[in-house]
Design a protein around this nucleic acid. Structure first.
Length: 769
RNA sequence: GGUCAUGUAGCUCAGUGGUAGAGCACUACGUUGACAUCGUAGUGGUCGUAGGUUCAAUCCCUAUCGUGACCACCA
């Protein structure tokens, strides 16, 4: 037996050791078929290869690892799918910065060379990430790790794209999309954050045709007036009724546009007359469709005004903001700007680039999400898929019921190339590979030498949405799929319910005709101790590695589980981790004491006698603890588990049972202490794996992590009640002692008038001293 | 504007139709066989506000105020 009596708890002595010496078997046996379907499988949400992990990662992996270790120790065939996400735009931005720091001008690199650099980045970044996950204790079968751009995954993505295209669910369309002028790509609705800002509503006079009169248009975007195709007023508006059908000139041009009636024009807002610019505004685009108006694009993809005759010479080719400033000056000088009103309005910003998003008409690939959504909604409605906490399903339904076509193409370098080829006359061929594309071209009578491959790549979330089955080898009917799909649970944050969760469900219902997972546990957002979101700019980011170095991975895990109250954000202070560390110290010290008592930790449960009330009592508490954990796990109440650990170990085991050993010092009771303590370590192992396994190994070299069966132990409830009453009596008398003093009459009387607890229990009255 | 949360001790948060709970902080005492990274005890709350249902409400209902998140829109 290794002796730990003289050492204090120091997490650094064993934490890195566990991967080499743990008895946890991470090997997956795919040939052993599971007839009872008694498996537990879970997908690790793949972190972006962008860099280091934050506390939110630590939280999600901790909770997942608790489930994995719990199910594994209870004998379930357990699979935890690890991996990484290529994270298109996010990674591209990080790599661009990285190249800049190395003094490389990434803009001069060819696409191929740039991508080569991204792979280099990925190499170093991913090993970094995995080592952090290991340090946290994640017990995943790492050799099954997947990357959303590895060879197999590329195949899966192509296959998925082709099938969706052939089913008419993917199509190309020329329509208004959100355009990021900095990244020069289309982005989806979800990648936009609307920010409320102070702005100005400018009132501008447009001259009416054949009259020396003006109509006043109110706008926040004066520079887009050269893309106007109409002016809209409300048909009930007495101010403008008689002008409907007439024409007005766009200032500084000789282009006249009609004044039309449309419900979009609100009499209460602005001047009541709104300019219609279908090419640069989503509402106007709809108005344009209703009235059969053309769309006039006046911006290029960098966010500059076009250099053409539609636009007055003075501002041609200028950047938006500059053009606006010049134009307003001009309008003001010419008396056409008649009012400036300060307003608050929402401005769309790109999530990744932080730049203002311009609606632009471009040709993009879309996925008909509406069609895919039906079965996904049904799966949640019928309860096949359950949200924990339940309220999140409302969020899910809200979005799914109003789902829009998903723009899946991006004009960036890093990502899955869309498997499409174009003929010389714009014919579109979607195929699995070039050979297939050529065959198809020949069939269509297109010159195969004139085929050109699509340069657009797919939205990162397209590949991510295939994660549940592509990782397991789809489209092959792999052993992994047979054994572990659908998965049991997914754990993630609410911020990606739309991005990821709902899309995985849609794709899985389409390709697998089955749900991707049964339970969805939505965890909290980790904020700082003041409730602020952690961000680099605020400087309040806590690095999980620092916490692990100082207090140990166990303490961090215990803290994150402790703070995981469903439906509430986590306010995280480092003091919480310190407190957790102190609790783990308590566990450690309990072991030290039992060792000084020469407690035998190898006794078999069949060799003990449960013949004293205190034995019944401690086993009843142990059962309560064990059953409690089982129900907590089912309800994903990780916080309860940690509370139970404290109540059992500190309040029940240490404060009473261990103290009692000092008086009830017989071999059998000490053996029971050994068994009970060992069971506590096993039951706590999913939460604090490092210290518990280390202690188990130390006290018994031939150890197991699986709890023993204690269901057959018959508990005498009278005995349990008796000990409970002793515990509360002691508590009361101690209270008297502290109120009146230890020499006081009150205390001595209370102490001497101890109730008769029976010959075998009266000895515990000595615990008062 | 719509939706969903949330308000309990100084702080962070559990919880329950019937005497209000934990940890931290604070106070006092304590180094009596593990544990000062500690132990024992204590101070501390009209359970946001106002109504209602009930024998009984912190809990259920309604309204209201505060806070937060998400969705939508504002030319």
């Amino acid at each position: 037996m290794k002796n730990i009596i003289d050492s204090r708890y120091d997490p650094s002595i064993f934490e890195m050791d566990i991967y080499n010496h743990s008895i946890v078997n991470l090997n997956i046996n795919l040939d052993k078929q599971d007839d009872n379907n008694n498996y537990f499988s879970i997908l690790m949400p793949p972190p972006n290869v962008t860099g280091i992990l934050h506390l939110g990662h630590a939280l999600t992996y901790t909770l997942q690892d608790i489930l994995v270790r719990y199910n594994r120790q209870r004998g379930k065939d357990t699979y935890w799918q690890p991996g990484l996400d290529h994270a298109g735009i996010a990674t591209q931005i990080v790599v661009e910065k990285w190249l800049e720091e190395k003094g490389i001008d990434y803009k001069t690199l060819s696409t191929e060379d740039f991508i080569e650099n991204v792979w280099q980045w990925k190499q170093q970044s991913s090993s970094n990430i995995v080592s952090q996950q290991k340090a946290l204790g994640c017990s995943a079968p790492w050799e099954y790790s997947r990357f959303t751009m590895d060879e197999g995954f590329i195949k899966s993505v192509v296959e998925a794209f082709v099938r969706l295209y052939n089913d008419g669910l993917i199509y190309k369309d020329n329509r208004l999309v959100n355009w990021d002028t900095k990244l020069e790509t289309a982005i989806s609705d979800l990648e936009i954050k609307n920010v409320e800002e102070n702005g100005t509503l400018w009132y501008i006079n447009y001259k009416l045709e054949n009259k020396e009169e003006y109509i006043t248009v109110a706008t926040t975007r004066p520079e887009t007036m050269f893309g106007d195709v109409a002016l809209a007023v409300n048909s009930n508006d007495p101010r403008y009724k008689q002008l409907i059908g007439q024409y007005a000139y766009i200032p500084y041009t000789d282009r006249k546009i009609q004044i039309i009636a449309d419900e979009h024009a609100d009499m209460e807002k602005g001047s009541g007359c709104v300019k219609i610019t279908p090419a640069h505004d989503f509402n106007d685009f709809e108005v344009g469709k209703r009235h059969n108006l053309e769309s006039i694009t006046i911006l290029d993809k960098h966010g500059h005004l076009l250099n053409n005759e539609l636009i007055p010479e003075s501002i041609r080719g200028l950047f938006l903001k500059k053009a606006r400033k010049l134009l307003l000056e001009q309008l003001r000088n010419d008396g056409l700007l008649i009012k400036e009103e300060q307003i608050k309005h929402f401005v769309p910003y790109g999530d990744r680039s932080g730049t203002v998003i311009e609606p632009m008409i471009t040709e993009q690939w879309f996925l008909n999400a509406k069609k895919l959504s039906k079965k996904a909604i049904e799966a949640v409605e019928t309860g096949k898929i359950k949200f924990y906490p339940d309220k999140w399903k409302n969020t899910f339904f809200d979005w799914m019921n109003n789902i829009q076509p998903w723009c899946i193409s991006r004009q960036i370098k890093w990502g899955h190339r869309i498997p499409a080829w174009y003929g010389p006359n714009g014919e579109i061929i979607v195929a699995r590979n070039e050979e297939e594309a050529i065959l198809e071209a020949e069939k269509l009578g297109i010159d195969k030498n004139k085929l050109s491959k699509e340069t657009d790549v797919l939205d990162t979330w397209f590949s991510a949405s295939l994660w549940p089955f592509a990782t397991m080898g789809w489209p092959e009917q792999s052993k992994l799929l047979n054994k572990y799909f659908p998965t049991s649970t997914i754990i993630t944050g609410f911020d990606i319910i739309f991005f990821w969760i709902s899309r995985m469900i849609m794709m899985s219902m389409f390709f697998m005709h089955d749900i991707p997972f049964r339970d969805i546990y939505i965890h909290a957002l980790v904020r700082d101790d003041k409730g602020q979101k952690m961000s680099k700019s605020k400087g309040n980011v806590i690095n999980p590695l620092d916490l692990m170095n100082e207090f140990g991975a166990d303490a961090l895990r215990y803290t994150l589980a402790f703070l995981s109250v469903p439906g509430r954000d986590i306010k995280f202070g480092r003091n919480n981790v310190k407190v957790s560390r102190n609790f783990i110290t308590k566990i450690w010290n309990a072991c030290r004491f039992l060792q000084t008592q020469d407690v035998n930790f190898t006794t078999n449960i069949s060799n003990i006698k449960i013949n004293h009330p205190i034995h019944h009592w401690i086993f009843s508490k142990l059962k309560e603890f064990k059953n409690g954990i089982e129900s907590d796990i089912k309800e994903y109440r990780f916080d309860y588990i940690t509370h139970r650990m404290q109540v059992f170990l500190r309040d029940q085991f240490c404060d009473f049972f261990v103290e009692a050993i000092k008086f009830q010092n017989d071999e059998n009771t000490k053996n029971i202490a050994g068994i009970v303590y060992k069971e506590f370590l096993k039951l706590s192992n999913p939460v604090i794996p490092f210290v518990t396994e280390y202690l188990l190994k130390t006290i018994n070299s031939n150890y197991s992590l699986s709890p023993i069966n204690i269901d057959n132990i018959i508990i005498n409830n009278n005995a349990v009640e008796k000990i409970d009453s002793i515990v509360s009596w002691i508590h009361n008398v101690r209270s008297i002692k502290h109120e009146f003093g230890k020499e006081s009459k009150e205390y001595i009387t209370a102490k001497n008038n101890a109730p008769n607890f029976g010959s075998n229990c009266n000895i515990f009255v000595n615990l008062l001293n």
